[in-house]
Simulated assay, not measured.
Amino acid sequence: MGFPYVSFLRVFEPLDAFDDQQQMLILAQRGRDREATEQLDRSESLRRITRTVSDPFPHDGEDIVRVLNYPSPEGLDTPYYCPNQLAVRSTLAAESLSHSLRNPLLGLLVPDAARVAQQERLDPDSFAESLSKLHTRSATWGIPFGWFVLFREDDRIEVVGDGQGIETVRLAAPISQCIDRARYAAASLAIAAPGLDLLEELTEITEWLETFSLRSIVELDYGEVAHLVFPDESPTDVRAGIECLVEGDMTGAAAAYRRLATRWIKIRQLARAS
Rank of each mutant, 00 (worst) to 15 (best):
G107A: 00
L86D: 08
S176H: 06
S132Y: 02
A87T: 11
K133E: 14
E243N: 14
Y257H: 08
A193D: 11
A182G: 00
E219N: 07
V110C: 15
S54W: 01
G31W: 04
E158A: 12
Y5V: 06
E129C: 12
E120I: 07
L171V: 07
M24E: 12
I64F: 02
L270T: 02
E44R: 13
N103C: 02
R51P: 03
V238P: 04
D154M: 03
Q29L: 01
L92A: 05
A182V: 01
A190G: 00
M1E: 12
C178H: 08
L134Y: 05
S126M: 08
A271M: 12
V238Q: 07
S96K: 12
A186Q: 02
G252W: 00
S72W: 03
L122H: 05
S176F: 01
R239T: 09
D112E: 14
G223C: 10
S72D: 15
L97P: 00
I26H: 02
Q177A: 15
D221Q: 10
A256G: 04
Y184A: 10
L189T: 02
S96T: 01
L209D: 08
V67C: 12
Q177F: 03
I267L: 14
A113E: 14
S130V: 00
S100A: 12
L198D: 09
D20W: 04
A254D: 15
D125K: 08
T206V: 04
S213D: 13
R263K: 15
G75P: 05
P73E: 10
E120D: 05
L105I: 12
T140C: 13
D197P: 05
S54T: 09
F57D: 09
P124K: 13
S96D: 15
F145V: 05
G31D: 13
D125H: 09
A254M: 04
A17D: 13
P83E: 13
H135C: 05
D19W: 00
S96H: 15
L76C: 06
T91C: 01
E153V: 03
V116E: 14
A256K: 03
D221R: 01
R215Y: 08
I166S: 03
W208R: 12
S7C: 07
E62A: 14
S274V: 08
A28E: 15
A172H: 06
E62D: 15
P71S: 10
A226P: 05
L25P: 01
R121I: 07
F8M: 07
L122Q: 15
A240C: 08
S132L: 11
R268G: 08
A256L: 03
S234M: 00
P14C: 04
F3A: 12
R183I: 03
A186I: 07
I166D: 03
